[in-house]
């Protein structure tokens, strides 16, 4: 494993990342508080406050997403989200085998981190899917629910608002699973906190 330090996360990525993290967690908590609203549950935020916060954070995370897209368009960071489809499954399989077995046998990571490859193939696939599929869908469905008059009233006999809400909730649920897995995988580093420190200092 390379011992020299790599500067992987420039300042704009770190700012975007932590802003995204705070907003996403707020959206998750307020989203759950609205979906399962119950004034008698002390663990949930009040419905009124949840609506206000969810709307505000939804707008802010959309603007932050714009920063991410623009940053990726005009810097080399965008390349980190591109992947070749040829051999993709094999690469993901190899990385999975490492996480499930190899790392416990002290084997070297099959795809070590470098300045050109910040993500291993599994991360690259999941991050790309989350950021370029999940985020656009959840932002679009969220915007539609913020301005419900733009939603088609009926789609194949179902309420258009309902379908939009279901899509929003399902994608939100998948992205929240991603968050938990992401947080856990980040503890797999040279130490439990090393990856978290990297996202603060920029150095890996």
């Amino acid at each position: 494993m390379a011992s020299e330090k790599l500067y992987l996360y420039p300042i704009w990525i770190r700012i975007w990342h932590w802003v995204n993290a705070i907003l996403f967690i707020t959206l998750l908590v307020t989203g759950v508080s609205m979906q399962y609203s119950n004034p008698e549950n002390p663990l949930l935020i009040s419905f009124e406050r949840s609506v206000e916060l969810h709307n505000l954070c939804g707008i802010l995370i959309s603007l932050n997403y714009l920063l991410f897209i623009i940053g990726n368009l005009f810097t080399s960071n965008g390349k980190q989200y591109k992947m070749k489809t040829k051999g993709l499954l094999t690469r993901i399989f190899n990385q999975s085998v490492y996480y499930l077995f190899g790392m416990f046998k002290k084997q070297d990571a099959p795809y070590p981190i470098s300045a050109e490859n910040k993500f291993n193939p599994m991360q690259r696939f999941i991050y790309s899917t989350a950021m370029y599929v999940g985020f656009p869908i959840i932002i679009a469905s969220g915007a539609a629910m913020l301005f419900p008059e733009i939603i088609v009233p009926q789609v194949f006999g179902f309420s258009g608002l309902l379908l939009t809400a279901i899509v929003h909730v399902i994608i939100g649920f998948i992205l929240s699973l991603f968050l938990f897995i992401h947080l856990y995988v980040c503890t797999i580093g040279s130490s439990i906190s090393s990856n978290f420190k990297s996202m603060i200092t920029g150095w890996h």
Binding site: M34, L161, F173
Partner: peptide
């Protein structure tokens, strides 16, 4: 659910169970 969407009031029993199972597995 048949005609509208009321946040907090629309609950789908099967989706709730499925989400708890998936979350539990993760």
């Amino acid at each position: 659910i048949n005609e509208s969407y009321v946040i907090g009031a629309n609950r789908n029993k099967y989706l709730n169970i499925l989400s708890v199972i998936i979350f539990g597995l993760v």
